[in-house]
Amino acid sequence: MLKLDAVTVRFGGLTALSDVSFEIPQGEILGLVGPNGAGKTTLFNSISGLVKARGQITFDGKNVIRLPLHRRARVGIGRTFQIPQPMHHLSVRENLAVAQVFGAGRYDPKRIDEILTVMELSHKADADAASALALQELKRLEIAKALATEPKLLLLDEVLAGLESNAKRTFMLKLRELHRLFGLTIVIVEHDIETISELCTRAVVLNFGQLIADGTPAEVFANPAVMESYTGTAHA
């Protein structure tokens, strides 16, 4: 459903992504891994339209690379931000309403309530999103906003970071549930090898903006080049 073909992103002299190509079939949960600064967020940015990229990004058979940011939500690309970005001056419910009305093109308060329930935000539905939420609640709001746009593809940027192992496990179950409930294709950025191995059927590895491995989590993490890049910086 998503196909990247030689996607390249440059910031001035820095090449943040160079010739990245891979494909994601419908319904997959793909792990995107790589050390800090590898270009994972930049890859999400180029898919969701936040940065200009060269190459081809084919989504549902159409090249979306020239599509403006706001149109990508409409075609079914949803994403979260690594550092949560709630819409300021809006309540949690209003955040979802805006996402739904403009991203999905319809207004359905019942569905918003469902999403709030699934993401365990019902108790904060009318609280100011930017000021009244704790970090983990903000992360759940990120996902809830993306879900409200009724995406086919969901890009999750380190939504599991900062959770202790029990909470992480619960949250992984939640992601599985979402995946099933909403019929999603998911790409998730995550540093923890165990989590990726458990959650994903496949993983791709970025290092210095280049794709260095692609395969099942077991294959990928057995690859010495991956482990070198990965552990090398993870402990630095």
């Binding site: 969701s48 805006v98 403009f102």
Partner: peptide, 24 residues
């Protein structure tokens, strides 16, 4: 209206608002 709500958000959260489909 939802337009008003979206506009309220745009001022301080332009990216976050556009990324959910709002054509600012």
């Amino acid at each position: 209206s939802h337009v008003g709500t979206a506009l309220r958000a745009i001022a301080e959260s332009e990216d976050a608002t556009r990324v959910v489909g709002v054509n600012a």
